[in-house]
Simulated assay, not measured.
Amino acid sequence: MATVNLTERSFAALLRDASLPVLVDFWAPWCGPCRLMGPVVEAVARACTGELIVGKLNVDDAPRVAETYRVMSIPTLMLFREGVVVLRLQGLKPKHEVLAALKTVCNVGRDVE
């Protein structure tokens, strides 16, 4: 499954209505590490199809959400279960590290390398 592009409104609705855990990539288009993290996030979304919803939230377009969740540096990945943050990863991470963290927290991700 591909990632979902989120807005402030769709972010709130997704967290409220999701039946699966939600991984959100807080990023910005001008951020070099964020651009490098993009393919990793896409790969994680494919690896966790059916187990996880993966969204991308541009912090420039949704500053209130970033402020609410105290996103001080990007890229930041947050995993939400039932609307609550259960995992936070900051900075550029390889796919295997993200999948290992997801597996530890909520047992998702089949192909940890």
Rank of each mutant, 00 (worst) to 15 (best):
G83Y: 09
L89G: 14
K56M: 06
I53Q: 04
P94T: 06
L20A: 08
G32I: 15
Q90N: 13
Q90G: 11
A100G: 08
D61I: 14
V105D: 02
E113Y: 11
E67R: 07
K95D: 01
V54S: 01
V54M: 01
A2W: 01
E51C: 01
L15N: 04
A100W: 07
V108L: 02
A45C: 10
N58F: 07
A2H: 02
T3S: 01
C106I: 11
V84L: 04
P94D: 08
Y69S: 07
I74C: 05
M78E: 03
T104S: 15
V84P: 00
T104C: 04
S73A: 13
F80W: 10
L89V: 14
C34P: 10
R81T: 10
P94M: 05
V4E: 02
V71G: 00
P63G: 10
E82M: 13
L102A: 07
A66F: 01
P21D: 02
A47L: 03
L20S: 05
R81Q: 09
A47G: 12
L89R: 15
P63E: 02
A47K: 00
W27T: 14
G50E: 05
A18E: 05
G55N: 09
L23A: 14
G32A: 15
A43V: 04
T104I: 11
L102Q: 09
R88G: 07
G32Q: 11
V86R: 07
M37D: 07
L15G: 05
E51T: 03
A43W: 03
A12F: 10
T104M: 08
P21W: 03
F26M: 05
L14A: 09
D17N: 12
I53N: 00
E42A: 12
A100M: 07
L77V: 14
A12Y: 10
G55Y: 10
V112C: 01
C31D: 09
M72N: 07
R110L: 10
S73K: 08
S19L: 10
A18N: 10
T7L: 02
Q90V: 15
C106H: 13
V105F: 04
P39H: 09
V86A: 05
E51Q: 14
V44N: 00
A66D: 02
G50V: 13
L92D: 07
V112S: 08
K93W: 13
L77A: 09
V71K: 02
V98T: 12
R70V: 07
G50C: 08
K103E: 06
K103Q: 06
V65H: 00
A28Q: 03
P94H: 04
R70P: 04
T104L: 00
V71I: 15
V84G: 02
L99E: 00
P29S: 14
T68F: 05
V44C: 01
R81S: 06
Y69K: 05
T49R: 11
L52Q: 06
L99M: 02
